[in-house]
Design a protein around this nucleic acid. Sequence first.
DNA 1: GTAGGGTTAG
Length: 457
Amino acid sequence: MVCKLSTRLMNICVASFCKVQQLEKAEAVIIDAIRLGTLPDVVTYNTLVAAYCRFVDLDAGYSILNRMREADIYPNVITYNSLIAGASNRSLFSRCFDLFNEMTMLGIPPDVWSYNTLMHCFFKLKEPEEAKRVLREKIMPKLSPCSTTFNTMFNGLCKNGYTSDALKLFRSLKQNGFIPQLITYNILIDGLCKSGRLRAARRVLKELEESNLEPNASTYTTVMKYCFRAGKFEEGIEVFYEMKNKGYTYDAFSYCTVSSAFAKTGRLEEAHKCYELMIEKGIELDIVCYNILVNMYCIQGRWEEVYNLLNEIEQAGLKCDEYTHTTLIDGLCRAGNVDGALKHLRYMDTLGFDSNLVAYNCMVDRLCKAGYINKALRIFDTMDIRDSITYTSLVHNLCEERRFLKASQVLLVCLKQGMKVFRPTQRVVVKGLHSSGLYSEARKLQSKIRLAKILRS
DNA sequence: GTAGGGTTAG
């Protein structure tokens, strides 16, 4: 006997397959259901739109929208929210705004979820004022903000350098009855750590521990990362074991954090062990996991394995990102293969990444250290964008070569552009000028350093 | 259907 499948049951099946990324099986369920006389509804299509946006690409999601239209089913706010989220996650911001216009033109009013995503987009575009305007003019008057609205706000403020504002907002909301979630605490702890306010971060962590919430893997990973970044390696490892003792499961994030720290401190065997455990546990390696592994093999000079990994990344359907290429360039430089690194840097230029500043910085520093300081200076001259790391590294290396006059010139350009050079490096230049008898040059530099300091404060 | 943690350079 053939039974008609209820729409609800079909949707549950479709959702289950979508959740585990088995889109073909989800589509097969729909085909079978149609054959048995059950037609997909807006929920079915929305499930597919979300899954295709998430696991395939935005166009795949959009093609489901066309299928909906052909089936005479009207998209709703959920359909558009999924598409907007898909565009936002891929940083296709103009597509987000287009989709927003499209839904409004179709008479589908955006809801608080739509505006939350819009706020998130503005924050990612480094336009915090626009994000605040969305909250003030769109969400507050007509809709009520939800916990995600505030979490998006906290996160956006922190990521845009307004950690104090985020903390202030948190305090005032809390006084007015706002109940923070675990994610709220995690956002603030990370933001405070990132801006160097470790004491404030610890206070928020204490608040979290005193609330009825339990820290999770994300909280631990954040704390661990900042231990490593602050050079407190053993402390970070302690956090890792504390996490284990408390029965938390490690995910790709925590393994990546700790294995990268192992690799940096030369404990490569333990770093590799993390990967064995990850694979044993069935954790799928994403591009970040691969990047750390590439770095490990580079450090060890295991080039055949590096190139095998690059193939493996493609075979897994992943794409090498700016970190992969930069890691490779740095590794090649460190191994003394300057030509190979330069070739790869040029190749990276052709790939159209938003930024390859770090790769250039690696090149400049490693070229200097390998004794090719003039080659490094030539690359430095071709750079359109430089940051304080570019300058610090070049100035430092020029001093090592006792080329204090050139170091002073580079440092002056840097200060003129309002950028900082690591303070001990500045002192080495002044001292070097003195020891070389270039007294007036030293005085000039010192007064410029002082001036820059005043202008910054 | 929206929000958080992991990877590169001085």
